[in-house]
Simulated scan of single mutants.
Amino acid sequence: MGSRSRSWRNPCLTMHQPWASLLVHGIKRIEGRSWPAPLRGRLWIHAASKVPDDATIKAMEDFYREIYAVDGITDLKFPEHYPVSRLLGCIEVVGCLRREELTCWKQVPEGVRLEGLTNFCWLCEQPQKLLVPIEMRGNQGVYDLERKLSQAAVRGLVPVESPLPFKFLLPNPRDPFSLKPGSISVRFPESEASEVEKSSNLSAAIASAVAATTQFSKKDHKFETNSFPSRNVQNFNRPFQPKNHSGFDHKMPAIEVATPVSHLSECSSSHKQLPYAKLSDHTGAPKIFAAAVRGLKHANSVDPAKNMQSR
């Protein structure tokens, strides 16, 4: 991503749910990426349009229950909803380490060390959430929020109390980029990998979280299609104009389109989710569909003359 070295006025990152809400609500302290954090300071968090399924939500909630329990925190309160296609709030990026370094950093809580699941770990503090999430489309990588949007968003922020407040210490307080890959081994040469005794529940939760987290790893800069509403997910996935690579809207009818993974409804309580079903949810659906196709072919072949007249 060639824009990583640039500076942003109002940097924003689009993330999938449930990770986006978990970060803004102060439960998630580490944002995992395949590339190092290109900035320090405030980072706006936007929830992508892909609706998370129940299994993914459960896997991540179970993961955080288990790793917080290692530090004695057992009363986690998870978000009631995981809205999509919304600007949710912001956090402060204070550093970035490789996973191997994070697991060796004894100066942070054990649960934080267990949270590193990807190559690069962005260290996040000071979560703030929007009282009213703002509907918007996202983009790939880190991008700038429009000035008017960011100004409006700042006025709607409220601080969030993390379940286990703490601060990542900078090796050099005068240099915001001093906490970077390689800095921990220099500052704490005696650091060792985490040796916490993992229970079967913790091991299972970590394995499930890894599977859930890496499901998008090969699609970092590709596109994901919208999904169906799921438990405690707010969604008004309205059709919108797709964008081309230059960021300008195509002049074409509104359609449901794929949305980027590094990506992109304010749900009113008066709206209820309609029941949706996928063809794959029914084990007999493929056979029924195949039978229907065969029936159509048979009907068309019964009387070719009639078929020709009908045309």
Rank of each mutant, 00 (worst) to 15 (best):
M1Q: 13
S3L: 14
R4F: 05
R4L: 10
W8D: 02
W8E: 01
T14I: 11
H16F: 08
Q17C: 05
W19I: 01
W19C: 00
W19Y: 11
R33A: 02
W44K: 03
I45Y: 00
A47E: 05
P52F: 05
D53C: 09
D53H: 10
A55S: 10
I57K: 06
D62I: 00
F63G: 00
E80Y: 07
P83T: 07
I91L: 03
C96A: 03
R99P: 00
R99K: 13
C104T: 08
Q107L: 11
V112S: 00
V112K: 01
L117G: 02
K129H: 09
V132W: 09
I134K: 09
I134Y: 05
E135A: 13
L145N: 02
R147A: 11
S150C: 15
Q151N: 13
A153G: 05
V154H: 07
L157K: 04
R174N: 13
S178Y: 05
S178W: 02
I184E: 02
E197M: 12
T213L: 03
T213N: 05
T214M: 11
F216P: 00
D220A: 15
E224P: 00
F236V: 04
N237I: 08
H245K: 14
S246R: 15
S262K: 05
E266A: 13
C267Q: 10
S268L: 12
H271N: 10
Q273D: 08
Y276K: 07
Y276E: 12
Y276R: 07
L279T: 07
G284W: 14
A285H: 08
P286L: 07
I288G: 03
I288H: 10
A292R: 12
G295A: 14
K297L: 15
A299M: 12
N300C: 14
